[in-house]
């Protein structure tokens, strides 16, 4: 994992954690007030948060979405379960594997490490949004040509990372690309082919950005 990715992940984690704490504090306070009001023995546990629904508006693959989400819902689960965009994968739900990588406002993030309700106004791009008018993105083409996958489960995350990498600072060598892609695990280990696919797109960097 690169320093860069680690730092970004740390940032994501910090934001997610503080948001979680804030939400729970709010919920605890609310439920405690209710408990006090009701004086019901059923509430004496004191730590049962009331289900909180949050309305959030964002763009996914260029389409405006207004969704009501459970405050505990990750962006990944929102995409998969709510919007039925199952291209983004859940591999670990802990930001350790990269299968859930999507782009938010042009930067790659682990969508499992961020709550859906934190993305008001954001532009989100998932694997489903890469191909334009039925034409695959050059990175998708390159992954097919270089066989950059086997089972395919990590592939959407790999491709989203790879597309984001094109506009990041990354050295020219294969090992540089391998390092920049080390936040995306492929247990089938198509790694050499993934690097080859990315290098091909980087060399002929035409229309390869979003």
């Amino acid at each position: 994992m690169t320093y860069k990715i680690s730092r970004r992940r740390f940032g994501q984690l910090a934001i997610a954690t503080s948001a979680l704490a804030a939400l729970y504090e709010y919920n605890f306070a609310k439920s405690n007030i209710q408990a006090l009001a009701k004086q019901s023995p059923a509430w004496q546990g004191g730590n049962i948060p009331k289900l909180t629904k949050v309305n959030v508006n964002f763009q996914v693959n260029g389409t405006k979405q207004a969704v009501e989400v459970d405050s505990r819902m990750s962006l990944l689960d929102c995409l998969r379960e709510k919007l039925k965009l199952t291209g983004s994968k859940k591999g670990c739900d802990h930001g350790q594997c990269g299968a859930c990588t999507v782009m938010v406002n042009g930067r790659r993030i682990n969508s499992c490490l961020t709550f859906a309700c934190m993305h008001e106004g954001d532009e989100i791009t998932t694997i489903e949004g890469l191909a334009k008018d039925g034409n695959l993105h050059p990175m998708q083409e390159a992954f097919i040509a270089h066989d950059g996958f086997q089972c395919g489960y990590c592939t959407p995350g790999q491709i989203m990372s790879a597309v984001a990498l094109l506009s990041e600072t990354c050295g020219k060598q294969d090992s540089d690309v391998a390092e920049c892609m080390s936040g995306n695990i492929c247990r089938c280990a198509a790694y050499p082919n993934i690097v080859a696919a990315i290098q091909e797109v980087r060399k002929g960097k035409v229309n390869a950005s979003l």
């Binding site: 199952t86 291209g87 695959l136 992954f143 097919i144 996958f149 395919g152 592939t155 959407p156």
Partner: peptide, 21 residues
């Protein structure tokens, strides 16, 4: 030969167990 299921895997269209609607 390129994988015949390649297109579905690079576009996110391939449906894994938890993804059936």
């Amino acid at each position: 030969v390129n994988r015949v299921d390649g297109h579905s895997k690079v576009t996110g269209a391939a449906t894994y167990a938890a993804e059936h609607k």
